[in-house]
Design a protein around this nucleic acid. Structure first.
Lengths: 233, 233
DNA sequence: TTAGTTCATTTGTCTTACAATATGATTTAT
DNA sequence: ATAAATCATATTGTAAGACAAATGAACTAA
């Protein structure tokens, strides 16, 4: 008989709520390719029968999925999987970082650096023209300067043509708007900004991913430095 | 009296559901800084009184926020804002792209290229050591090669130290696992992979963001080429 | 003082009922 | 025959009430 019993490590058992289990089962319809984006889901009545849960529990799950942009529910028509997620869900999630400006800035920076690299591979002539127009509008120093600047960045991000990251970048750019509006006007040197934009544009025109990245890195590093200087190691 | 009335453009009016309005009001607590991550929200009973909605509507909103990782609800304790969002919500959202392997690959690529750039600015000596250990483990060609490869990438992404993007990258790496497991074994040339990892590691050691980016770009371009070659412009 | 039991608090689930919305079908008026 | 109005229907949206489950606090007994 041992004086001390063997030490035993046991994992705690956590049962997920019914609502979360319903979410998982509906998502499984997508991952298993039983249903695809755009497809109609069974009605609420059918789903409660199929899944053996009450309607409020099912509605909690469906509301979750709708808030996350995964589905759209229409009275009398039914419930459909979305084609893509917009920016709203990411805006909601970004609210958790509302007090952390450096993190928001660096998240935006990381995302834009990656997207500009991909954009250099696949930007179209039409998109290049649109960028040129935006740059021209900025050179006129019109009233909507900040908005045009934002659209310049947004245009590049969209040129990467990645549906998965579009919602994120939109939410980050929008949040950046709100954040910088609360701080003193940052970009006072339009000339430098436009020169940096030009360098980015030139690299994109050459379809050079590395040059595009380094031009954007220089530009966003300057934006960051004026906004906030994170503590480097 | 004009023969043709003036053309009038009017926007359609859409009233949001009560549940979504509740979500927005709770989020506003964060963006207005009335509450912060970790803080306790009022109880369900209090919220129904404050917001003049029924409990099921409130629960739909709270379920949404919990599935999105924004809050955590505990029986008897109450409801708290999270400190950060894990990978689960992003895994759910990624299910919409389950059929689009190129998009998943390029989303991962864009995210990793941005994060490795930031990581070069701020990686710690300890993190570098951990990377070295992972590389050593990979050189032994052990049974968990793929998992170690994944952890190498994950370690770099974490080194960027950005709470906002951590959940995304985790979900993408995990999804990448699942996707590639369904395809023939891709990485047959461990030697090349390890050399590319070494180049990335060297650039990170020098804390050179541009070199880190270009090394990672070369590496991930190869991974992508073996997985799928997206149609370039 | 400690261990076991009971109670209270808050979230979790269900049933029932009615409301609201949007669309197609039917009826009525021209 | 056609257009407009009305009605019916399908599905989602909201609410009230009741009970269950989980867990920490308070109380009681040893």
């Amino acid at each position: 008989m041992e004086a001390h019993p063997k030490e035993v490590t046991m994992k705690s058992i956590k049962r997920e709520t019914m609502s979360k289990q319903v979410v998982d089962q509906i998502i499984e319809l997508l991952t298993s390719r039983q249903l695809n984006p755009g497809d109609k889901l069974p009605t609420e009545a059918e789903l409660t029968d199929m899944l053996f849960v009450s309607r409020p529990v099912l509605r909690e799950a469906l509301s979750s999925l709708e808030t996350m942009g995964m589905i759209q529910r229409k009275t009398r028509e039914g419930t459909f999987f979305s084609y893509r997620i917009g920016s709203k869900p990411f805006s909601i999630m970004l609210a958790l970082s509302a007090g952390d400006i450096p993190a928001v800035m660096e998240a935006r920076m990381a995302l834009e650096l990656g997207l500009v690299t991909m954009a250099a591979e696949k930007i179209t002539d039409q998109q290049l023209e649109q960028l040129a127009e935006l740059m021209h509008a900025m050179s006129l120093n019109t009233a909507g300067y900040e908005q045009i600047d934002k659209n310049f960045h947004r245009m590049i991000a969209y040129s990467a043509n990645n549906p998965i990251l579009e919602g994120s970048i939109d939410a980050l750019l929008n949040m950046f708007d709100k954040t910088t509006n609360q701080i003193a006007q940052i970009d006072r040197d339009h000339l430098v900004t436009m020169q940096q934009h030009q360098a980015i544009f030139d690299a994109l025109s050459k379809r050079d991913p590395l040059a595009a990245h380094s031009s954007m890195y220089i530009h966003l590093s300057q934006v960051r430095a004026k906004l906030v200087k994170p503590k480097l190691r």
